[in-house]
Amino acid sequence: MNLRTPVKVGDVLKLKVGQEVTVTGTVYTARDEAHEKIVEFLKKGEKLPFELDGSVIYHCGPIVKDNKVISAGPTTSARMNKFSLEILKRVNCIAFIGKGGMSREVVNAMKGKAVYLAFTGGAGALAAERILKIKNVYWEELGMPEAVWELEVEDFPCIVAIDAHGNSIYEEVEKKVKEKLKALL
């Protein structure tokens, strides 16, 4: 399945954990500092320079040279847990791309409106091949990795890792890991 931006609730609800999906359209990179700033704006009721509702947030800090993305794999999403809870309160629909998954609180807050797509961590060179161009950059003063880069992507290959129905592939794995660890010790 191909997910197009802006993302719609109807499409998001169709996605199931384990399913392969490609993303086409606009994605915004955001990591720790951008998330902190987004939440500051939201709490003050100020308007963001980009539209969050229906957006795809990519947990990523790319390498950019001469206005071109050189390498752009995902960063660890769990660092964005608390900020994502604030974001989820204020949007009708959203998709995240990242690696490593997010907390149970976030998984719950995502129900009925959001999906989390995993892109293989470390595969920055391959990711850059699917980024057609940089459309804009916001908060560049935060530095290259922490700025928000508005990117146009085509057929960005992901796996649904947390769906909008409360299922998380990571939790299923973690549960088994806990049992196996207990048996081992």
Binding site: E20, I70, A72, G73, G124, A125, A127, I159
Partner: peptide, 28 residues
């Protein structure tokens, strides 16, 4: 199956990075 998919992407990425002489991962 999902693990194999991740491995495929990893190996393809290693090839692309070497061929194009670009960083394997954006976190250098």
């Amino acid at each position: 199956e999902i693990a194999r998919k991740n491995f495929e992407i990893i190996l393809k990425n290693v090839e692309v990075a070497k061929k194009k002489k670009i960083p394997i991962c954006q976190d250098t």
